[in-house]
Amino acid sequence: MTDAIDAAVGLAEDAPLFAHRRARAAFVTGSEACRHAVLAPEDDHGLAPALRLALACRIATLNADTALATAYRTALAEADAGADLAALADGASALPAPLRAIARQADLVTTRNQTAARADIAALVKAGLSNPQIVALSELIAFVNYQCRVTAGLRLLKD
């Protein structure tokens, strides 16, 4: 069965690279378990799945990963999320609180991680995020950046 990474890379079950990925079964199952843990966790700490999908779409777009961004956008549309989350997914910065602070952190850590500092975490606290929410947000941002590098690398091995 194909997974989210196969779909984004464009791998069918009869593709050689599909089988080569399965030689490292723990990477495949582990990536799927992580995707579930950051996008649709049992305990979302009040960061709803639709918000997570919108952020994932925004981060995949910053990574110029059209296939992943489209997959997240499609899932977001099915979640019937509303205008604010659509704007978040589209990369807008004029957003209501706390989405504005959340979007700013996602953009910062994705594109300029080395400049992230204590004041940026303080800004999330000021926007009302709890410690579990700050950690869950951080894991989501970082996961999508992981996923984008796996897909970018595997596409180079596809042919």
């Binding site: 080569h20 490292r24 080395q114 996961f143 091995l157």
Partner: peptide
């Protein structure tokens, strides 16, 4: 080999994750 490169892609990618936890969340 192709299998080696798959291993390398994942090693680089997982640090695209870990670096984005450790640096933003602390010092």
């Amino acid at each position: 080999s192709g299998a080696d490169i798959i291993d390398l892609i994942h090693a680089v990618a997982i640090f695209g994750w870990a670096n984005r936890l450790m640096h933003p969340l602390g010092h």
